[in-house]
Amino acid sequence: MSRICELTGKGRLVGNHVSHANNRVKRVFLPNLQKVSLMSDALGKSESFKVSTHGLRCVEHNGGLDNWLVKTKDEKLSVKAQRMKRAIKKSRKAENAQAAA
């Protein structure tokens, strides 16, 4: 399992662990990933994602999963999130067509 946020693309960072004697050893900073189930209003179902806590706050700030997926570029999203984004856009397009008719 890769340690990458499925919604923001946030992954590991590499840096140095610096001791008191100023010895430097490579180390890895991992994102705080949580497995959460997020509800899509447009699709009416929930989906499970591995999301960083920062990504979860971003989703809540933007008004939910649907708005976040529509606004985010595909390069940042996982394959599962990209599929959900396409389904949401399709659902919104169908809703707009029904409202116009």
Rank of each mutant, 00 (worst) to 15 (best):
C5H: 03
D41Y: 09
G15V: 07
C58K: 12
H17M: 11
L77E: 07
D74T: 14
K85Q: 08
I88D: 05
K50L: 14
N22A: 12
I88M: 02
S46A: 14
R92S: 01
V79N: 09
Q82I: 13
F29T: 03
L7C: 10
A100V: 14
M84W: 06
E95G: 01
V25K: 14
G44E: 06
H17R: 15
R24T: 04
V36M: 03
G15M: 04
K73V: 12
S78G: 10
M84S: 00
R83N: 09
A100Y: 04
Q98N: 01
N67K: 04
G11Q: 08
R3S: 11
S40N: 04
R92F: 03
K93L: 13
Q34R: 14
N22T: 10
I4L: 12
R12C: 11
S40E: 03
W68F: 15
R27A: 08
D74I: 10
K89H: 06
F49P: 01
S40Y: 04
V14F: 15
Q34V: 13
V51S: 05
N23R: 08
K26F: 02
N32P: 02
G64R: 10
F29M: 01
V25I: 08
N16G: 07
N67D: 07
S2Y: 12
K80R: 13
H17P: 10
G11R: 09
E47N: 05
R86H: 12
N16L: 12
S52M: 00
L13R: 15
L33W: 00
V70E: 08
H61A: 14
S46D: 12
